[in-house]
């Protein structure tokens, strides 16, 4: 039973094929790391999964509900806005640039969606938010504003904010790429904890170390295609494809 099924996803920007009929099935509790050079389409693919980008062809099914599928002409057709809103709520998203709401305190950032979207009780939302802040190690920063926090702390708030909606799947789009190297550790630790709690995670990342340590499956993408996938040791330690070898060579050399 897959919690997410993306089948033959095809997307075009202007005159380039960005995603060339790629498929991905994710099991509940699985941690999938997607690696690859910039411009390989990995972020676009992730963004297609929760309709931050639309696809031109293919089918996406989340938690047993179809969000988009092909019509008779082979063109992708999305469900109505209401259905999509409900289906997307199963997915949490963490961005490279955090995208916290700067005019709201940390606590308000976490409570906003539960109150507005789920119409949660205020006290309940506050309790959940405070518990999540504790979990990401920011129990003392509930009343801070985002600009007062370091990048690593902001990203941890962003993770807590996504978790506040109780998603079934967490998507991470290069969550540590905007951070100073000394701050990536605290974010990766929170992600590791999540993985240990059996959260389903799809992580687009440059952190080969994290992929090796935490991911159940590593996918290498290049040029809009899934070039190679397998367990972390298969793909990272013993790659079969030349393109994977070349990429890992440059990444590891840079360290």
């Amino acid at each position: 039973m897959y919690i997410l099924q993306a089948t033959n996803i095809y997307k075009r920007f202007q005159h380039t094929d960005v995603l060339k009929d790629i498929s991905l099935n994710v099991e509940k509790g699985e941690v999938v790391a997607i690696i690859g050079p910039s411009g390989s389409g990995k972020s676009t693919f992730l963004r297609c999964l929760n309709r931050l980008e639309t696809i031109d062809r293919g089918q996406i099914e989340i938690g047993g509900e179809i969000m988009v599928s092909n019509n008779a002409d082979g063109k992708a057709v999305y469900r109505g806005e209401k259905d999509i809103a409900r289906i997307r709520r199963k997915m949490g998203m963490v961005f490279q640039n955090f995208n916290l709401f700067p005019h709201k305190s940390v606590l308000e950032n976490l409570m906003m969606a539960p109150l507005l979207v789920n119409k949660s009780d205020v006290n309940e939302a506050r309790d959940t938010a405070l518990a999540l802040l504790k979990k990401v190690g920011l129990a003392n920063n509930a009343d801070s504003y985002p600009f007062e926090l370091s990048g690593g702390m902001q990203q941890r708030v962003a993770i807590a904010r996504a978790l506040a909606m109780n998603p079934a799947i967490m998507c991470f789009d290069e969550p540590t790429s905007a951070l100073d190297p000394e701050l990536t550790g605290e974010v990766l630790k929170v992600m590791k904890d999540l993985a240990q709690e059996r959260m389903t995670m799809i992580v687009v990342t440059h952190e080969i170390g994290f992929a090796r340590e935490v991911a159940h499956r590593v996918i290498f993408m290049d040029d809009g295609l899934i070039v190679e996938q397998g367990t972390a040791s298969e793909v990272l330690l013993n790659p079969q494809q030349d393109r994977t070898k070349a990429f890992l060579g440059t990444v590891l050399m840079a360290r």
Partner: peptide
Amino acid sequence: GQFEASDVLGLSRWQTLRHI
């Protein structure tokens, strides 16, 4: 990113405008 964050959190267009 502010629109996208609101969007993935499930805020409606009106809520995004009004609160964010």
